[in-house]
């Protein structure tokens, strides 16, 4: 393990760490997702059987986590582009990160019902 793995802390470093972690998680999900979709080429039954597991309450929670990772990576990615291409990007990187976090919180609150609603109905009945 290299010594001194903490660079500077604060917004710049932690957003970079979060961008990496979410990126790697999304990429590993993508492999699984292409494989499960490839089952449509095997048979409708095989595909529907696997997709049925995606509708269980535990996987719904994982889906919510996936949405969280994708939304952060997308919004922070736009911030990275602004830092690189906008003349004042580097100066406003902190403000842009807090804008990203605020937007992310709003979108995640909005995603609760659509993503977790069916799981709640299954668990507690409609």
């Amino acid at each position: 393990m290299p010594a001194g793995t903490l660079y500077r802390g604060r917004e710049g470093m932690w957003s970079w760490v979060a961008h990496r972690v979410t990126g790697v998680l999304i990429f590993f999900f993508l492999f699984v997702h292409v494989l499960d979709t490839a089952l449509v080429r095997v048979s409708p039954e095989a595909y529907d059987k696997v997709v049925a597991t995606y509708k269980s309450p535990i996987v719904a929670l994982l889906e919510y986590g996936l949405v969280a990772a994708i939304l952060f990576h997308a919004l922070n990615g736009l911030r990275v582009i602004a830092v690189d291409f906008w003349v004042k990007g580097a100066r406003y990187q902190k403000q842009m990160l807090w804008t990203v976090v605020a937007l992310w919180v709003v979108l995640m609150l909005g995603a609760i019902y659509p993503v977790l609603g069916h799981a709640a109905r299954e668990l507690f009945g409609s």
Binding site: T37, P44, D48, V51, Y54, I70, A74, A111, P114
Partner: peptide, 26 residues
Amino acid sequence: VVLVIGHLLIQLVLDGGVSKIGFAFV
């Protein structure tokens, strides 16, 4: 950003979310 967020809206939010997905939907 456009492609994936559109994909998430269609697959997970609109028309009953993930519960509608199946071979027929694909």
